[in-house]
Simulated scan of single mutants.
Amino acid sequence: MIGIIGIVVVFVMVFGGFVMAGGHFDIILHSLPYEMTMIGGAAVGAFLIANNGAGVKHTLKDIGKVFKGAAWKPQDYRELLCLLFELIRLARQNPVALEEHIEAPDSSEIFGRYPKVLKDHEATELICDTLRSMTLSYDDPMQVEEVLDKRMEASLNHAMHSSHAMQTVADGLPALGIVAAVLGVIKTMAAIDQPPEVLGGLIGGALVGTFLGVFLAYGFVGPFASKMAMVVQEDAHFYKLIREVLIANLHNHPANMCIEVGRQNTPHHVRPSYGELEEAMRALKREAA
C-alpha cells in the first residue's frame, strides 16, 4: 500500500508543481509516446542484454515486493522459533525419531504444523541439512557456523540480483533520456527554416526525453531497486534466526535458551515477546506430554 501511495505522491508533486507554475501538458502529451518508446524500449533492451532468462524472471517476480513488503511477518518468526524448539527437543530426547522428520519434511507431522515455513524450500533445507549434519557428528560449532554463513551469503547474493539489475537500469535511464533528446535536436535542426513557434515546440519535445529519463530513473526505477534490496535484506533475518538457534544448540545450551538466543537476535519490529513465546512453548510441551 505504501508503495502505491509513493507513486501517487511522485506524480502529484511533480506534475502538480508543473501546472501550478503555469505549465501546459500539450507538448509533453504529444511527445510522450515517441519519447517513451525510445527510452523505455532501449531500457528494456539493455535489461535483456544484461541478464539471462532466469535473471529476467527473477527480477519481474521481485517487483511485487515493492508493494507486498517483506514475506515474513511477526507471526512467522514465532512459528519458526516454535518449530525449532520442537526439533531440538526431539533431537535430544530421541535422535533416531528426528531422522524421519528431517529426511521427509513434507510428510513430517512437526513441519506440517508450520505450513508457511515448510513451503519455503530455503528455510526447510537449511534446517534439515544442518540437523542432518549434526546427526553425522559434524557438530563443531565454529565449523558449522562458517558453513551456514557461506551458504546464507550465497543465497543473499542470489536474492539481491533483481535489485542490482533494476539499479543498473535506473543508472542508464538518464543517459537514454539524453539519447532521445539528441535525436529530438537532430529533428529540430532539420526544421531550422520553420518559424519560432514551430521550433519552440520541437525543442520542447526534445527536452521531454531528458525529463523522462531522469524522472523514471530517480522517481521510479531507482526507488524500486532500493525497496527490493531492503525487502530481501529484511527477509534474510529469518534465515539468520535459524543459524543462531542451531549454533546455540551445538553449544549444548538448554532448548529454551537456544530459542531465547534466536528471539533476541530477531529484529525488534518482528520479535515475539518473551511471554508470548514462553506460553507457546509451554503449550507444545503439554501437547507432547
Rank of each mutant, 00 (worst) to 15 (best):
77 Y>P: 10
82 C>Y: 01
46 A>E: 09
15 F>P: 01
52 N>T: 03
76 D>P: 04
127 I>W: 06
73 K>F: 09
65 K>P: 02
97 A>M: 14
49 I>H: 07
83 L>F: 09
89 R>T: 11
10 V>N: 14
124 T>M: 15
17 G>N: 00
34 Y>P: 00
45 G>H: 02
23 G>L: 05
63 I>L: 15
67 F>V: 14
39 I>H: 03
116 K>S: 04
80 L>M: 06
124 T>I: 09
20 M>A: 14
43 A>Y: 05
40 G>Y: 08
130 T>A: 07
36 M>F: 14
40 G>K: 09
135 T>I: 09
73 K>C: 06
62 D>M: 15
28 I>Q: 00
62 D>C: 15
81 L>R: 08
77 Y>A: 09
60 L>M: 12
7 I>K: 02
45 G>M: 05
27 I>H: 01
87 L>D: 05
70 A>V: 12
118 L>K: 12
20 M>I: 11
140 D>F: 05
49 I>W: 13
104 A>R: 15
59 T>R: 08
74 P>T: 07
57 K>Y: 15
120 D>C: 05
63 I>W: 13
104 A>S: 07
128 C>P: 03
112 G>I: 06
114 Y>T: 10
33 P>S: 10
21 A>K: 11
98 L>C: 00
20 M>E: 12
129 D>Y: 15
130 T>L: 10
77 Y>C: 04
68 K>D: 10
118 L>D: 08
116 K>I: 04
114 Y>E: 11
35 E>P: 03
9 V>T: 10
16 G>V: 00
123 A>K: 04
47 F>M: 10
43 A>M: 07
118 L>F: 09
68 K>N: 10
86 E>A: 07
57 K>A: 13
43 A>F: 09
132 R>H: 12
5 I>L: 13
133 S>Y: 12
35 E>D: 13
18 F>P: 00
107 S>L: 11
54 A>Q: 15
77 Y>M: 09
61 K>R: 15
121 H>G: 02
131 L>V: 06
43 A>G: 10
64 G>E: 13
86 E>M: 08
47 F>S: 07
100 E>M: 08
135 T>D: 08
71 A>G: 11
29 L>T: 01
15 F>E: 00
55 G>C: 03
13 M>S: 13
82 C>I: 12
95 P>L: 13
136 L>M: 15
104 A>Y: 06
120 D>Y: 03
74 P>C: 06
59 T>H: 05
20 M>R: 07
70 A>F: 04
80 L>G: 01
27 I>C: 01
14 V>K: 04
93 Q>R: 11
51 N>T: 13
115 P>C: 11
101 H>I: 12
73 K>T: 07
9 V>K: 04
7 I>L: 13
106 D>P: 01
52 N>W: 05
4 I>G: 02
54 A>V: 12
122 E>Y: 13
32 L>G: 00
35 E>G: 00
70 A>D: 05
112 G>L: 02
64 G>D: 10
125 E>Y: 13
